[in-house]
């Protein structure tokens, strides 16, 4: 038996989310009295693979084949399912990011394993296997029983604390005996935004809404974000108006994020907006309207005009950072 944790890599490197997954999987393995096995697919060197051990994986399987440099959900699901069978996995854990969302449902069918998507904590009980997950876009939560012997879980990003252990992991390399035709996805063109902090990875996010009045007023938001090492975001009307790029739109129909700190500046806090940000650990709201719904979701608030408050806030953060 084992808990199998699929960890994606980005140009051969792991990131915080990979270690969250291992920390979660290792703790789950403990609950189930079994071992945590990490599975990396792609070209990753041993130094990088060893990092996974530090978070509690006792075995690391590294599978690679050049045809897998292209992400193809069907091919990835097949590889993970084969290894899950080989490792006698009772639970397979993936991230609830683009890759995990694409692969996990396929795994569920291949393994006939019930899927719990977007969990943010450990199961509430093991027998029956009950998970806790968001429903109705964060307006409620459900207790979901997974009835099958094998389970697939996807873990919401930034929802589980890193946990370092003194674990020593064994690394096994497996060759993927693979017919390259099985990878049906062909990439025609890649458009990368360079040098930006990814909104889904960011610990701090500074976000502006229609209360910012125009695209020309964004400089203090960008400056505040730079000072805090934060990503910038916006509400939907702001991206619809073209004040900010579409990638920044958060909410039910945009990105769903869970940073440690979210600044909502000139954002009213409509349910569809909150659906994307309500899992943030802290929300700070700045709004002229003291009755704006955003204040019910926020821990800290300032009632006032953002154009007056932001410059002062930027100064205060500069002082803090000694700049």
């Amino acid at each position: 038996m084992s808990v199998l944790i699929f960890v994606e890599n980005w140009d051969g490197k792991f990131k915080k989310l990979s270690f969250e997954l291992i920390s979660y999987g290792a703790r789950l393995a403990e609950m189930l009295n079994t071992t945590a096995v990490a599975l990396s697919v792609g070209n990753v060197d041993n130094g990088e693979l060893e990092k996974l051990g530090k978070y509690g994986a006792s075995q690391i399987i590294s599978a690679h084949n050049d045809s897998l440099n292209v992400f193809d959900s069907q091919a990835f699901a097949k590889i993970i399912a084969n290894l899950a069978k080989q490792e006698n996995a009772t639970v397979v854990v993936l991230s609830n990011n683009n890759t995990g969302k694409a692969v996990a449902p396929r795994l569920s069918v291949l393994l006939k394993a019930g899927l719990g998507a977007g969990v943010s904590k450990l199961p509430l009980s093991i027998d029956p296997f009950v998970i806790y997950k968001k429903v109705y876009s964060g307006n409620a939560f459900s207790n979901l029983v997974i009835k099958t012997e094998i389970k697939v879980l996807t873990l919401a990003q930034n929802s589980y604390e890193l946990n370092e252990t003194s674990n020593q992991a064994v690394i096994t390399k497996v060759a993927v005996d693979w017919n390259a035709d099985a990878v049906k996805t062909k990439v025609i063109e890649v458009q990368k935004l360079s040098g930006k902090i990814l909104l889904t990875d960011a610990d701090v996010v500074v976000s502006g809404g229609r209360g910012m009045k125009s695209a020309d007023n964004w400089a203090p938001i960008v400056e505040l974000a730079e000072l805090l090492g934060a990503a910038t975001a916006c509400s939907r009307p702001v991206s619809d108006e073209g004040w900010r790029p579409h990638e920044e739109h958060t909410g039910q129909t945009g990105k769903i994020i869970a940073p440690n700190l979210y600044f909502a500046i000139g954002i009213s806090g409509a349910t569809q907006h909150l659906a994307g940000v309500s899992s943030s650990k802290f929300i700070v709201a700045i709004n002229t309207d003291k009755d704006a719904p955003i204040f019910s979701a926020a821990q800290y608030g300032i009632v006032g005009d953002a154009s007056k408050i932001l410059p002062k806030l930027v100064e205060a953060v500069k002082e803090l950072k000694g700049k």
Partner: peptide
Amino acid sequence: DSLTEVVAYEMPQPRAACKFVDPENPRQLV
């Protein structure tokens, strides 16, 4: 046969009341 079943729903934990900071003094927020 379905593989999963919702056995109960819960409402989100109410958030603690928002702490307001003087608009003249955002340094307090920091």
